[in-house]
Structures are given as structure tokens and as C-alpha cells.
Amino acid sequence: MAELTKELSQVKGEEPAVRGKDVRVHPNPEPTTGKRPLDAPTGTPTVIVDDLHIVYRVYGAATDAEKGNAVNALTRLLKRQGRPQMKEVHAVKGVSLVAYHGDAIGIVGRNGSGKSTLLRAIAGLLPPHAGAVYTDGQPSLLGVNAALMRELTGERNIVLGCYAMGMTPAEVREKYDEIVEFSGIDEFVQLPMSTYSSGMGARLRFAISSAKTHDVLLIDEALATGDREFRKRSEQRIRQIRESAGTVFLVAHDLKVIEETCNRVIWLHKGKMRMDGDPKEVISAYNKG
């Protein structure tokens, strides 16, 4: 146990330095493009996004000046103004795209350009304000964090997370040992997740969320975390998942990962699509401005 803690404290120290320098999710994109039916004219569309607009409400976004003291609230009522705490954010403004079986599509853009929102809309988790998303089967977002509870043991969280992703009890039993083994948290599985170091928590979350296979897979931000050894394993796992999935969407800030992984890149800027095409072209344009 002491060893593990020591190891993990090193992990946390080295994490920021390593990131962005040497993360290779996919060492060589060429062999896979050969396998993909992408260039074949018969490639069937799996995801169609038709002039999509997403508007969502944000609460508690008031500035300090207008924040909830009673006098302000009363004047607002008298002046018949709406609540300033609620703001509508027009996150995606008219995006259209067609994704085909075998596509691995990277999405780049600045913070707040609507990348995650677009993924959630494709997954069918956010309702469109206008336009529509059509999919073949149920796309799923890789990640199970929201379903887990910090106060519970790793054991219980594995079961809970698997059920949340829609597994059957038989599947959960089948995957349980694999998840524990892959996460490498050993006897910590008996302890509440709140006692885990951040690296261990990330490893367990990754192990759970990557235990399921998907037709259309949406990956939000690079999931490979933890120490060097675990990162290597998780990159390998991501590659497997990606290969077994029909279509992959990947959001990452690490352009190198996108360039190596994807056969097509979409550049979102302030909720609109600025470019859609070959990774090299789009990324060099994105880097220029």
C-alpha cells in the first residue's frame, strides 16, 4: 500500500510534463485507413447531423453585481425582468455533417466552441433547439464518472457504473475481474473511492467506462491518465475500443493525438463549423488562427 501511494505521488508529479509530448494513441494511421471502407463509395452513413442548433440554460451565471440579494431580486420583480441567474447559451449554431462507418472524426476548437455539446447532442443526451441528429443505433459517450459515488467502495462503484452503462448482471459478473485487474487498484477496491488518490480514481473510472463496446463511440478529451505504465495500457485499450467501434468522434486538445488517430477533422469555432476535412489541412489552418 505504501508502495502504491509512493508510485502514485510520482504520477501526479509527472503528469503535466508528459502530457502533450509523447502521447501516441495511434502510432501509425496508415494501416487502419486501408481497412476502413471510408473511401469506398458504398460507405454507409452512421451519423447525420442536420443544421443542428443547441441552446441550453445555465443557472447561477449572474455577475457579482446582480447576484441574489433580496433588494435586487425585488427590483427585478418590480421592473418585470427575468432572472439574471438564468442564461441561455447558444452553444452550437447550425452544424451539419455526415459521418460514415469507419470514420474516426476529430473535433478541434477553443474552449467553449461547442465541442462537448456537439458530442452530447450526437449521443442524444441534449435535445436540439432546431435541426436534428440521425444515428444508426445508440451512440454512447465514453465515460461513467457522473454515475459513480465517492462515498462508495470501488467494488460497489464498478457494479453501479456497469449497470449505469446498461449492462446485464451476467455481463457485470463477467467484466468485474477484468475491470479490477485493468485498473490495477488491487485491494483498494474494498475502500471508498473518496480515499483514492486522483490517479487511482482516474484509473478505476477509465477501467469501468472502457469495459463496454459501442457502435458509435464519442470520446470527450483524452482519457489516458495515470502513471506511464497505466497510460500505455489505456492507450492500447482506447485503440481496441476504437477499432471495434464503427464510428468514432474524438474531442481532444492534443492536436497530435487527433492527427494520428483521425482520418477527418472538424474545426468548430464559436459553435459554427469552420472547416471539415483532411486532418493535416484542418490542423495546420487551426494552428494559424
Binding site: 452513413p45 442536420d50 451539419s96 455526415v98 447532442a121 436540439p128
Partner: peptide, 26 residues
């Protein structure tokens, strides 16, 4: 093609989705 579809009479995206049997994700 599809983007131009609404304007120039080519297949709109909704039709394309229908042709391939895709359903609304939500």
C-alpha cells in the same frame, strides 16, 4: 451535396438519413 441540397434540389440530409434508415438520436 447535402448542404446544397435544400437550395439546389439535391437530396437533403433528412432524406439521406431516411434512405439509410437512421433514426433521430433523441
Amino acid at each position: 451535396d447535402a448542404q446544397a441540397g435544400g437550395r439546389s434540389g439535391q437530396e437533403p440530409l433528412a432524406k439521406l438519413a431516411e434512405r439509410y434508415g437512421l433514426r433521430r438520436s433523441i
